[in-house]
């Protein structure tokens, strides 16, 4: 259990003069669920993008299961077991929803993991079933609502069977009822097990989220980011009591 899964060391990313991510270091254990919070523009999305290789850091290193990820291509990183979702969902709008997920079942990793499932369609269908949108499998992705698009992102993530899952605002724009459902899905995914013909070990997760109440129930530990640097780190209870955090972030919500 105490094995180190991810080790981020003094990661820095500049956009012009702006240090969007500034000297960030942290570690994650296997199966751990980490919450990443911070005000808008704190650099949360940028940090996730650095981890998946969508952006290249200016300096620093990311060690995942003993391998340096900095410098690797996104598709390569994903095949090593890191999956991510997008804050502003990115569906293939003109393709049916099932095809949206099938693409995620076609990576070398996914093909290798579910070798015994003959048909890609079946695998994709099970992922949709898990996310709860299998009834719309044949519709075009352009008809999906905000909430269902978030579910599609989850279905895609499940399809790649990751060991580390990066969720960027999974509750963003969802109604309270939808938020509850999504929180349950995430919890179920983290526990792992069999979902139809799919199988999940229960990935470690980094969850970026604004809705703290929901987040606190899911995560083991929270990192607070502000202006690209880590402001505080600790269990959810510790973090909400931290005066710096209250000032920088929570205070605004209390107004």
């Amino acid at each position: 259990m105490a094995e180190i899964l991810l080790k981020v060391e003094s990661l820095t990313k500049r956009f012009g003069g702006l240090r969007a991510v500034n000297d960030v270091s942290f570690c994650m254990q296997q199966k751990e669920v980490l919450g990443l919070i911070g005000p808008n523009g704190a650099g949360k999305t940028t940090l996730l993008r650095l981890l998946t290789g969508i952006l290249k850091p200016d300096s620093g290193s990311v060690i995942f299961k003993g391998t340096e990820l900095v410098g690797l291509k996104t598709w390569n990183i994903v095949n090593r077991g890191v999956a991510c979702t997008f804050q502003n969902m990115r569906p293939f709008r003109r393709l049916p929803i099932i095809a949206n997920v099938m693409v995620y079942c076609l990576s070398p990793r996914s093909m290798h993991r579910g070798e015994w499932v003959k048909k890609v369609e079946d695998k994709a269908m099970d992922a949709l079933e898990f996310a709860g949108i299998s009834d719309m499998a044949l519709e075009k992705a352009s008809v999906l609502s905000q909430g269902d698009l978030k579910r599609l992102e989850i279905a895609r993530a499940v399809a790649t069977d990751p060991e580390l899952l990066l969720l960027d605002e999974p509750f963003g724009g969802l109604s309270p009822a939808e938020t509850d459902l999504m929180a349950k899905s995430i919890h179920r995914l983290h526990k792992g097990g069999r979902f139809g013909r799919l199988h999940s070990e229960g990935p470690a997760m980094i969850i970026v989220e604004h809705k703290l109440q929901q987040l606190m129930k899911i995560v083991d530990r929270i990192i607070v980011l502000n202006f690209g640097t880590i402001l505080a780190e600790g269990t959810p209870e510790e973090v909400v009591k931290n005066p710096q955090v209250i000032e920088a972030y929570l205070g605004k919500e209390g107004d």
Partner: peptide, 17 residues
């Protein structure tokens, strides 16, 4: 087809676009 729609999303699917 997916590459035409959104290449970045195909990359995050683990596919060498």
């Amino acid at each position: 087809h997916a590459i035409r729609e959104d290449e970045l999303a195909v990359k995050t699917a683990g596919i060498n676009t």
